[in-house]
Design a binder for these strands. Structure first.
Lengths: 364, 364
DNA sequence: GTGAAAGCGCTAACAG
DNA sequence: CTGTTAGCGCTTTCAC
């Protein structure tokens, strides 16, 4: 067998090549890299010199294979990566996760459905542990994931007895948002919900996912306390992105709805709602109040600045990674912990008094 | 040696265990998973049943080791991950990369300095190829990277003869932005630059990085054509984030600068500049014009909507991944290609006529 | 201080 | 159709 590939890519020298060239054993070469103290200094230096000259580099997979740990953390999302990255919320979460992962010497790999299957993707994932984002019990492959034995920490997911979790008080936050609107006199409100990642939810265009359901129930509770019922036709679902929010609002108007306010489950969607309002020639908040959820960085700089439910996104990421690392380290606590952060309503300028009852907006 | 770890974590069954249990050879088990066609259907089914019952799953690292390909793409950034994720621009790029990587069956791993060293991180990276973002020739470890032999595609980086690249016309875009401001009568303008990732640049607080330099030269060229020189004291550097832009503007004002406009190298920074204006009680664009760069999704929804230089961020990501995949596949073209996309100025409302010459803003 | 050798767990060429 | 076997490239214990 020729040592040169047909693509004529340079052949990577192996540890044996270096050993031969340096006139030592493979073990010595390994020591030169991993435990230089065990070699006579001059030997170590010489070996490394030879290795460098040959362009030798320990093969990361072989090394990992032997070591039985990858020093990688996985970030698992039931949605495809492009849709995940489209939501700035995820960037903030990744900030938090990567900060503590990096500090602990861990790298990050993103695990999302491969060929439509999370199971396949998970099976391929070379990670020591996973942060799972938005995993619900009704996910078709959740049992598989649970059974893999991979240490996991759940963020914004259903609870599983075996795993630690990090979340926020979604219901409370949603309820606070509703009460805010109610206090401003709003009675006709649409909910812009995050669509579930499951095929079923997508097919039905229905909301889904743990967080979605919790927030929905918070909204409902708020309305119920005021004796108002939130009709199913007033709940629109879409992707958690600007585009998704925009499309929900368009659908609402197309369906003849003329609400005075919109409760959005993600700031990205709320920004989309802002765009929709602009399209419809609606002034925010005079003609339409918009309340978001998340309080991502840009929300305070939108036009108008967004009233929204704040949650500590980065801290959630940090905490999740911390929990995971601690369950990974031999000295760390293997105890499962459930951490819930508070939410709080941040009132800015996208919400205001409802326009007088029944008075439809005049298109300019 | 006990087969049970002290952390009492369930022992993962190996292929040999399944083979023994099913009364077949390891090869048959492997075939049952990878080439079921080579087994009698009933045998294959039985084996998979046994495997399932035992909770067997092929070890991803071992599998990868044997296969000699990881089916993973790396995304390399000279900056630490948290700072990278702080810039929405990167989210858009990741959208593009992940879309084509996922379609090609590849996963994504993020590679950023580990213990301060890109070399260490790269050495550990189990990837088939890398998309390098913002790599400049003057990076201390760039030679190491080049020498690894890992297939790479460069985004927004200096050119390297061996690698394909994807970029935009930074200089042209920057120049267009400058000319726009000049046409509006601005003569006293500060530049809010992206700080280089190198320790040196950080220490000096100086701008750095390929893209930064290109845009800076575009700005300079624009001013020069009008006979104006951009003083070094008018160039502030910071992280490519809202926070970074805010801090640059604070520093500018603290230094006694009272420009009528700011040219920001990233929309995230421009949003920070918007925040600074608010702090300083400056109306945008009446007292201060702000021009960004990137045209990220939210830029059209800020208060006021951002005048900025548009670049096709997602397409850059897609193109980079496509180039990389094609160089990875046996049939793909190994040719190095350099792809440059156009930029174009998008005028929105954050820029306007300069306030009359010499007339300082009155703080409200 | 240095080297020999035994794996890590899997895949696939080759025999049977 | 099924099993034997030879690695993939490295690390690390154990002996010298």
């Amino acid at each position: 067998v020729s040592r040169t590939s047909d693509r004529s890519r340079a052949v990577r020298p192996r540890i044996a090549d270096v050993a031969r060239e340096a006139g030592v054993s493979k073990a010595s070469v390994s020591f030169a890299f991993n435990q230089p103290g065990r070699l006579r200094p001059e030997t170590a230096t010489r070996i490394r010199g030879v290795a460098e000259a040959m362009g030798y580099r320990p093969h990361p997979v072989a090394r990992t294979h032997k070591q039985q740990r990858t020093m990688m953390l996985g970030v698992l999302t039931p949605q495809e990566l492009p849709v995940v990255f489209r939501n700035p919320w995820f960037g903030h979460l990744a900030e938090g996760i990567s900060a503590v992962a990096g500090a602990g010497g861990y790298g990050l790999a993103f695990v999302s459905p491969l060929g439509g299957s999370l199971a396949i993707a998970t099976g391929r994932a070379m990670v020591d542990g996973m942060v799972c984002v938005g995993l619900s019990h009704d996910h078709p492959e959740v049992e598989y994931l649970r059974a893999t034995g991979i240490p996991m920490v759940l963020v914004d997911s259903d609870h599983f007895p075996a795993f630690s979790s990090v979340e926020v008080d979604d219901e409370g936050g949603a309820r606070a948002a509703t009460e805010h609107l109610l206090a401003l006199g709003h009675r006709d409100v649409v909910v812009v919900a995050i669509q579930g990642p499951t095929a079923r939810a997508r097919a039905e265009g229905s909301p889904g996912g743990t967080v979605t359901l919790r927030r929905l129930s918070g909204y409902r509770a708020g309305f119920a306390a005021a004796g108002i019922e939130l009709g199913d036709d007033h709940v629109l679902s879409g992707a958690a992105s600007v585009e998704g929010g925009l499309s929900c609002m368009r659908r609402a108007w197309a369906a003849g709805l003329r609400p005075t306010a919109a409760l959005c489950m993600a700031d990205a969607m709320a920004i989309g709602a802002l765009a929709a309002a602009r399209e419809l020639n609606l002034h925010v908040p005079r003609d339409l109040s918009i309340v978001g959820f998340d309080d991502i960085d840009v929300s305070r700089y939108t036009e108008p600045p967004l009233t929204t439910v704040h949650q500590p996104i980065r801290r959630k990421g940090e905490e999740a990674a911390r929990l995971l690392l601690s369950s990974l380290s031999p000295e760390g606590s293997p105890a499962v912990e459930h951490r819930q952060f508070e939410t709080r309503l941040v009132v800015r300028s996208s919400s205001g008094p409802a326009r007088p009852n029944g008075q439809e907006v005049t298109r300019a």
